[in-house]
Nucleic acid binder design. Structure first.
Lengths: 248, 248
DNA sequence: AGATAGTAAATTGTTTACAATCTGAAGGGG
DNA sequence: CCCCTTCAGATTGTAAACAATTTACTATCT
């Protein structure tokens, strides 16, 4: 048999469109609140309304757009509550996946090389220079670990929430600084080592710690009024007090 | 302003279709592996392929159907790994929501009456007689609590996972007995009481305990071979060993 | 002026027709 | 006998037209 030339099964048109629109949202070209008019987009992309319609539904399912019957879709606008909820979800679901991964990391069909490669990408000069690129690299590494756990629902949820984070970072203009980037890489290096050693307890602890520090880092740029309000929220206490961290 | 007469905004046709198909899957009329042919369904429902197509995508997004480009959709077939993953997710995300709810239960805009009503429904004779109805009532109560937490992403994820559970119960023919039903209600009553008392720590503990017992109950009917295999899985250990329970 | 009904443009929802792709069976070498 | 090609039917993907709904503007009445 000759080799399969049909290797790229080509995502469906609707998926490609959705990817393109998502990208536009993440890069700030499509701002929160913008309307997504089917006809308009159809003309822009030179394609009929059918696939456009489907792409918009995909974005809506991801939470990036809101649909109202007979009124079309608008790009949704994230707020601080959303950020906290997303981090809480990532902390919990990620913990399950990291635990699973560490417990199975010695098995033959798991190789951490892919994750290692993504970790090293975080040292690239180009990546280090850009806030959004650094965050993107961070999330790609995290998602790769979760994907290696082999838990499909959790993997999907984490990928979805990673997009949420990027939307929030874009919309709320969150900034990390150079030392944050340094810490990020060093934390991930330790995490990966513990996973490789199959020390699931320690790995989960490092994971929870990482999410907490991520939250702490992005609150640095906030005014003290906003900070006080933020720390008054039950979710914030949940993230910082409960679970594996408190008992330490 | 007069009261809103437009109370029933009527879901979109695609949503209604998706609801109908989902129901058919949950009742076992559409079995795992069945093909979902657009033309066929269009004739059955006497509607064009457009909305049918959209409905199938909705089911696919929920994980109830699998889509293959140019090859149509089939009803997906759940297995034991899926059940465990779903329970692990419910345990974690539910814990966040219960914690949040207990911490805010004294606030004016939270009323637990709706949850109380759903709890009482679990004592109906009709519900008690049917396994699937009992499970459905159980999940409705759990989902109501989570919804009251006001965390939209977690609420959505829990609703999605509740459908997963029902699919698994249907496909794997899981059975509870009368005493399980009794325990179910008594556990929920205690949980609700702790939430009302705003004792978030105790409430979360009861939640985790409930999920664990649910898993234990549905494994009762399994052969010991299946059981041994099940308890070998890392996820199983995760559900039973880690988190809030171990420290007790 | 302010409220209200009527109306036209814009937009989404649905249908129908057509194009592209896949599946499986029949037929023709090797 | 097996493998490969070919072709027809079935099925999904896309386009374009039509129907229903919403929105915003205008005219009219009190």
């Amino acid at each position: 048999m000759s080799f399969n030339t049909n290797v790229l099964p080509q995502e469906s048109t609707a998926q490609l469109l959705a990817d393109s629109l998502r990208q536009a949202i993440l890069e700030g070209q499509l701002k929160p609140g913008s309307r997504l008019v089917e006809q308009e987009l159809a003309e822009q992309y030179e394609i009929s309304r059918g696939p456009i319609r489907e792409a918009i539904r995909i974005l809506a399912a991801e939470g990036l757009a809101e649909l109202r019957k007979n009124k079309g879709a608008v790009v949704s606008t994230p707020n601080m509550d959303d950020v906290l909820e997303v981090y809480a979800i990532r902390m919990s679901l990620g913990a399950i996946a990291i635990d699973q991964l560490a417990r199975t990391s010695s098995e033959s069909d798991v190789d951490l090389e892919q994750a290692q490669a993504l970790l090293e990408k975080m040292n690239d000069r180009k990546v280090r220079q850009s806030n959004t690129r650094m965050i993107q690299a961070d999330l790609l590494f995290q998602n790769e670990l979760v994907a290696l756990s082999g838990l499909p629902r959790i993997t999907e949820a984490m990928e979805k929430s990673a997009v949420d984070i990027r939307v929030c970072v874009q919309a709320l203009d969150i900034k990390y600084d150079e030392s944050d980037h340094e810490n990020l890489v060093s934390r991930h290096t330790k995490l990966l080592a513990q996973i490789a050693k199959a020390n699931s307890e320690k790995a989960v602890e490092l994971w929870v710690d990482h999410i907490r520090k991520s939250v702490a880092e992005f609150t640095k740029g906030m005014s003290s009024d906003d900070l006080n309000e933020l720390f008054d929220r039950p979710l914030m206490r949940h993230v910082f007090e409960s679970k594996n961290g408190k008992a330490k």
